[in-house]
Write a protein that binds this DNA or RNA. Structure first.
Lengths: 348, 348
DNA sequence: CGACCAGCCCAAAGCGCTTTGGCGTTCCCG
DNA sequence: CGGGAACGCCAAAGCGCTTTGGGCTGGTCG
């Protein structure tokens, strides 16, 4: 069933039918109702390809998710993020395109997408420090919003970010207030901007109390359970091990937990842990009392905000750059307590 | 830069340029080279909207991921699955459309997608027992492949599935060989077909040794960490608790681990656990010695296979139904050991 | 009463590509 | 040397929609 058929069934022109369905004023209320009834009856759906060609808009948004550079790790966070964003797109009649690509191919992908005209806007995931994609997209001229920011990029652009620096500052201060002064950081890959900011926040809090940077207890890597586990084992094997750990994700925190378990150490009593919690739907940090003391920020909500910004940018491109900085909730759970002496690993 | 411009720059007709670029034989090798050079020079990319309209194919595949019915949980497994599938699509020039939708809206979504002609094929995720979507899609006539199967659907269709029944049969037998006869099952939601099959495999193994079904130690729910935790607490609080547990996912298994930890019980020594491991990139079951004894089946590979099937179906629709049953790897890890007496929960 | 203006509706021209149906050359072979 | 196939190219007709630029009523106002 296409426009032509529907129009002839109704004894109207394609123009009128099209206008009736798209809410233009040049058509009487009576015929509009008649048209709508007929459309519903025959389950008429305008062909999206034809519509896209005619209007020049494809009603689609691209999400381009970079694959972890070393081990092809897909960041599980993006599942919830896209669920949030997708719901907003759907409200506006947009669909979601998804590409999961290696960093090396990224430049090409962005160029292709722009030249082919497949989408009306782009979401940039996992920005790096001084990320070249931002300038590229500015050249290309397609509306885009970055989930996160990129330190060192001077120009202005649309973004939604969590205040990672402040969050990790707070967490570090919280631990120091409990008497910890050897605090390890198990971070994501620090080429990624969010990880760099977290490190900066952590270091600035330490510095404010006269504690210098100890590269030996700052570790970064892909945010896997194994990274959390192996790093914790390594850190606690040091001659002067940390008494508290800051984890860049809940998944890392679970790795920490397993390591402690292996070593016969207990959270809170022997060692304190604070984790960043993206509030993933399948990985709840305890429904009642949080397992981990955490910096909580719903990545799903971030997805929604990013999507809303992009929708706004597309509908009125001249409205200036839009930016949103989200603060985390600091939730106190069962994984933190006062510092005692250096924990002794009773190898289990 | 569009076809018309490129053609006039070359002093050729649009027809010839189009054919040259699409590899048709009616154009001489010399001009083909000339055209290709010009196209590369001007970074010409055919407008995908126009191409789609002209060919009637949109070069896109839809993935429709249902949202967990009760708590809007996004299954994290699909991130890796789509990474696998997406790579295959890219090789064939297809892009990925993603919708994450509530079950209640699903029927409508499928109908709309078909009527609007947005995609050339569909992947069905998370089929339920007697899933109505299969019949619906057969009516609609769009090529589709199911990731999993649907018990009780009589007609034939394309699918790729893991042999869940056999896997859980093996795991149950393995535990019984170790002397366990009270084995708990912490399953996904059993309306979902994979979970139903796992249950069936588990029950059939028990039955083969004369052990009947005990509904008290078979629990199902959303596959979250919390489900694993809470269920384990509940099961081990029973008067006659299980000595071994079968977990439908690694995430559940991590919940189990936390519960055991809280109770002061140790994996292997006090209780044995086998988990189904989707081999998620960020949740490795130990790079060297597996943490959990596990039924391993890479969901990323499953994504690839599903995608390949769909590509084949689209390119030659008459080739008959295609089905693939993948067997799991049974890997023995550190979480299983011989049954001792009933573990006593030393409440910690 | 005539001019004008809304109010409704329509025909037709794109959007940028593919593809059908031909049209001139060239080349080969009888 | 002439006829026909083979080759290489082109003009134009779609694909299904939107949108421009009217055109025809019927009502209103000077």
């Amino acid at each position: 069933m296409n426009l032509k058929e529907l129009a002839s069934k109704l004894g109207l022109s394609q123009t009128t039918v099209s206008r009736a369905l798209n809410g233009y004023p040049e058509v009487s209320e009576a015929t509009r109702l008649r048209v709508e009834a007929a459309a519903a009856l025959h389950n008429y759906q305008p062909n999206v390809r034809a519509k896209a060609l005619a209007t020049g808009r494809s009603m689609a948004i691209a999400h381009i998710v970079p694959l972890g550079s070393e081990h092809e790790i897909v960041n599980p966070v993006f599942a919830d993020f896209i669920a949030g964003a997708g719901a907003v797109y759907a409200q506006h009649g947009y669909v979601t395109h998804l590409s999961i690509v290696k960093e090396t191919d990224e430049q090409k992908i962005y160029r292709d997408i722009a030249a082919k005209g497949t989408v009306d806007g782009i979401i940039v995931h996992a920005p790096r420090v001084r990320d070249g994609r931002i300038e590229l997209l500015q050249q290309i001229g397609l509306p885009f919003v970055v989930h996160g920011r990129s330190s060192g990029v001077a120009s202005d652009y649309n973004w939604v970010d969590v205040n990672n620096r402040r969050a990790f500052e707070r967490a570090t201060n919280f631990l120091m207030d409990l008497g910890h002064h050897r605090i390890g950081l198990i971070n994501g890959i620090e080429e990624l901007d969010f990880a760099a900011r977290r490190r900066a926040g952590y270091l600035s809090a330490l510095a404010s109390r006269g504690i210098g940077e100890d590269p030996g207890i700052i570790r970064s890597g892909e945010m896997t359970e194994h990274h959390g586990y192996a790093t914790t084992r390594a850190l606690l094997g040091l001659p002067d091990p940390p008494t508290a750990l800051l984890a860049s994700s809940m998944i890392i925190a679970f790795g920490i937990r397993r390591a402690l378990d292996d070593l016969g150490l207990r959270l809170n009593r022997d060692i304190s842990v604070i984790a960043h919690d993206d509030d993933l739907s399948y990985f709840e940090n305890g429904p009642d009392i949080p397992i981990f003391t955490a910096l909580r920020s719903s990545v799903r909500q971030a997805g929604q905000r990013v999507a809303r910004l992009l929708m706004a940018q597309i509908s009125k491109p001249q409205s200036g750059f839009m930016q949103e900085l989200l603060e985390v909730d600091f939730v106190v759970g069962q994984s933190t307590g006062p510092a005692r002496q250096t924990p002794t690993a009773r190898q289990g």
